[in-house]
Design a protein around this nucleic acid. Structure first.
Lengths: 261, 261
DNA sequence: CATGGAATCCCACATCATGGGAAGCGAGTT
DNA sequence: AACTCGCTTCCCATGATGTGGGATTCCATG
C-alpha cells in the first residue's frame, strides 16, 4: 500500500522493517539526513519518518546535530559495527590482505554477501574501500558470491534490474548465468571493465565446509598490472591468501577438511 | 508491563525499540544467541523474540548459522558500522592515537558517549579495545563525558545503579558530582583503580565549539608508568593530541575558535 | 513583512504487532 | 527403542500499538 515493491513478508514486521530501512538510507545518501529527507527517500509520511527517527535516536542508532537537527548514524551503530567486525575475526584478515596487496601490487579486498550487494568488509590497500557496497552482477566479488551462493541466499534470480555501468556490463540474466557457470568451472571470476572502465579484477572464493562462499577475495588493478601472463600467478597468490583466510575466519567446524580424497 | 525499567517514552515505539534491544543483546552476551536466548534475555515471549529476529534477519542485521540456527550480527551491521566509522573520520584518529601511545608508552583510547556507556571507538594500542563499552561512573573516559555532557545527554542523574567494581569505585551520586566538579576544574579526569585494580588512567575531553565533550581521550597504563611526576607531562601530551583530534574529527563549524580572548 | 519549508506534537482510527498455543524436530537420557 | 525435554517455527484471534493527516511553531529566505 505504501510504496513500490514492499514485499509483504509473512512474518510480522512493518515498523521494524521501516526503521531498518531508515538506517540503510544513510548508506546510499549523504552522511546526514533530515526527517523530511528520510520521508521522501522512503516514500513515507513525514510524521512516520520522524517518529521512527526519534525511536532510533533514543536507542543511540542515530544522533542528531543540535545545530541543524539533521540525523546521522549514532554511537550504537559504530559500537555494534566494531563488535561484529571483531566477532567475525576480520581484524585478523587485514594483515593477510595487506601482504597480498604488497606482493601483487594490486588492491586486495574482502567482501561478504549482504542481501543484493557485495559488501567490502576489509581491505589491504592504502585507500580501503571498506564499507562500500558493490553490485553483484558487475563485479568479480559479486560473481564469486553468486556462483557459490548458499541455497537460501538467492542466486541471480534475486536481481531483476541488472543496470549497465559500462558497455561491457552483463545485463542479460541468461548471459550472467552462463558467466557464473564459467566462474564455477575455472574457480575464479574476472571483471574486465564491467563496473568501471580501466579496472580489472580477479576474485576467488573463501569456501566453507559446505562448499559455499563465505567471503570473496578480490585483487584489483589496472589492466597493465593484471595481464594475461600474470593471471595464473596472481590467482595462485589470491588462492593461497584465501586458504589462509579460511583458517583465520572460519571456525574448525565450519571449515572444509584440509585435504581432499 | 514487560520488564524492569521499560520507560514508556511518549513517541510511539514498541516493536522498533524491542528490535534494537535485540541487537544490543549481542554486545553483553555471546557472539551468537538462539531465539530462546534472546527471549530470556529480554523478558519477551519466545514467539515475539523469534519474529523480531526474523525481521532483523531479512534486513541483514542478523544472520543465522545454518547448522545451529542461532543468530549473530549480520552484514548490515558490519556495513553500517564501517560506514559510520569513516563518516566520523575515526580512521583519521588512529595514527594520532598510535603516535600518542608510542610516545607515552601507554594505551591510548578514544571514546564517545553512547547512552549510559562510554564506547571506545578507536584505539592506539596493539590490543585495541575498540567497540568496548565502559561504565561512565568508574572510568576516566566516562567522567570526562559526564563532566562536559551536552544538556540533552543526561548527567549523572541518568545513572541510578552505580555498581562497585573495586573498593575505590565511587558509588555515591553526591561524591560523583563532587568528583566531576574537580574534573571540570582541573580539565582532566583520573581513574586510579576504580574500575580494575592496578590500572591508572588519565582522560581529557575533545571539546566542540559549544564547550561539550564530543569525545574523551584516555591514556591508560600501570601506576608505574603513570606516576605523579609524569602526570603533568602525560596530560600535556594528551591535550596536544586532543587538540589535533578536534581539527581532524570536527567540522570547522563545530570546532571551537583556535584562540581565546 | 510575507512566504515557504521543516521539525515537532496531537489524536482518533484500524492496521499491525502481540503472545498463547500447538506442531515438528533433534538430541540426550532411561 | 521409547521417552522426554527444549527449541524452532507457524498460526490466528485479540486489542494494544503504530499510523498519518493535520495543526502548530520555528527558522531561513524572498
Amino acid at each position: 500500500m505504501t510504496e513500490t515493491a514492499a514485499v509483504r513478508a509473512p512474518g510480522g514486521a512493518q515498523a521494524v522493517r521501516r526503521a531498518l530501512d531508515v538506517l540503510h538510507c544513510f548508506h546510499d545518501n549523504g552522511p546526514d539526513l533530515s526527517a523530511s529527507d528520510l520521508a521522501r527517500r522512503l516514500g513515507l509520511p513525514v510524521s512516520t519518518a520522524h517518529r521512527l527517527a526519534r525511536t532510533l535516536l533514543a536507542a543511540g542508532f542515530l544522533e542528531q546535530d543540535p545545530r541543524t537537527s539533521r540525523y546521522r548514524l549514532g554511537p550504537s551503530v559504530t559500537e555494534l559495527g566494531r563488535l561484529s567486525y571483531h566477532q567475525r575475526g576480520l581484524h585478523l584478515a587485514a594483515p593477510e590482505l595487506a601482504d597480498l596487496a604488497e606482493r601483487t601490487g594490486a588492491t586486495a579486498d574482502l567482501a561478504l554477501r549482504g542481501g543484493p550487494h557485495a559488501v567490502i568488509v576489509a581491505g589491504g590497500s592504502v585507500t580501503p574501500k571498506v564499507g562500500l557496497r558493490r553490485p553483484l552482477h558487475s563485479t568479480a566479488l559479486g560473481k564469486v558470491l553468486l556462483a557459490w551462493a548458499r541455497p537460501g541466499e538467492g542466486g541471480p534470480g534475486s536481481l531483476p534490474p541488472l543496470p549497465a555501468f559500462t558497455d561491457r556490463t552483463i545485463v542479460d540474466p541468461v548471459a550472467l548465468e552462463r558467466e557464473l557457470a564459467r566462474v564455477r568451472a575455472d574457480a575464479y571470476a574476472l571483471n574486465d571493465g564491467e563496473s568501471a572502465l580501466g579496472v580489472r579484477t580477479l576474485a576467488v572464493p573463501v569456501l566453507d565446509g559446505a562448499g559455499h562462499a563465505r567471503f570473496a577475495l578480490a585483487v584489483r588493478a589496472t589492466p597493465e598490472v593484471i595481464t594475461a601472463e600474470r593471471t595464473e600467478w596472481l590467482l595462485a597468490e589470491a588462492r593461497s591468501c584465501a586458504r589462509a583466510l579460511e583458517v583465520l575466519l572460519l571456525s574448525p567446524a565450519e571449515r572444509r577438511p584440509p585435504a581432499g580424497p
